[in-house]
Computed example of a mutant assay.
Amino acid sequence: MGSDVFAEGLNPLERFGLEVREVRTGRKLTQKQLGKAVKYSDGYVSKVEAGLLMPSERFARGCDLVFATNGLFLRLLRRVEEGDHPSWFVPYLQLEWKAVRILDFSALSIMGMLQTEEYARAIFRAGQPREVPEVINGQVAARIRRRGVLEQERPPAIWVILHEACLRTVVGGSGVMARQLEHLIRMAESPNVDIQVMPFSAGAAGVHTLAFTLLVFNDESTALYVDDVPQGGRLYRSEPNVGIALENYERLRAHALSPDDSVALIKSAHKEYRS
């Protein structure tokens, strides 16, 4: 592969796409032919090659099989996953792509996968006020790339419980919040995304636990990620920890507003930010 000369200045995702395109054209395959071979659409291949979509592990393994590259694209994918993310978060990201269901409780800020670029930038800048713009830009880009999980041909079912504090805490200003809530409303219309809001009126039921995410896999095994920043999040696979979290999630869901009432509350808050 001779693209290193041309890859200077590209981020890891763009470099991955460039390598796919170079090897594909070298093998004289069209995007449609590669897509068929790895069981993805040609549109998916096009977005990956353009550096616009985070490729799945299945796609990377498929490329290695079709191109006979002996794990090269899987290794490149690992570099993409590690770029601009703290080391303690990388194991979670690798599992996130494999999940068939994602259950999230967001206590203070909106789940990363559902954040807009402006909202994410405000979060990172507030947490790292002395950091140079290039680092912040990389972190924002890495967070936005996580949307690729939702753009897979078979995306996971996502159920998010947002504490009302996520809607009322003004991150980045009223304009940023208005666009963030508009994005949430659009996401709630997706058939594989459910959003519930835990209202302030739920009282202690909504504040007894930290933010956490449960990843459920095809074999029904489950992983738990607990967000206890700034020290860094923790990933658990043991049954006692996962079982307690699943029970907590069911209780949170029971105390939250229904999905329809939740969207109505989000729309109401959205109007307030726009006024």
Rank of each mutant, 00 (worst) to 15 (best):
G43S: 15
L53N: 01
L214T: 01
V149M: 05
G71F: 15
W159K: 09
G35V: 08
E153S: 13
G26N: 15
D42Q: 15
P191C: 01
V242D: 02
P86A: 02
K271R: 14
E82M: 13
S268F: 05
L76R: 11
G138I: 01
E82H: 13
G127E: 14
W97E: 06
L29Q: 05
A50Q: 15
P155T: 02
A205G: 07
L181C: 00
G2I: 14
Q196I: 05
I110H: 06
V207E: 13
P191V: 00
P191L: 01
M54S: 10
P91C: 06
I195C: 00
G71E: 13
D261P: 03
D42Y: 15
D104R: 02
P199Q: 09
S190I: 03
M187Q: 02
M177D: 10
V90K: 15
G83M: 10
F59E: 02
E189V: 00
E220C: 05
A7E: 15
L184Q: 01
D261R: 01
E250N: 13
A256I: 08
I158H: 06
H208Y: 12
L167Q: 00
Y273H: 06
P55G: 05
T169L: 10
N218I: 00
Y119L: 04
V149N: 05
L72I: 08
L184W: 02
S46A: 08
A165D: 07
V171P: 15
R179C: 06
R146I: 01
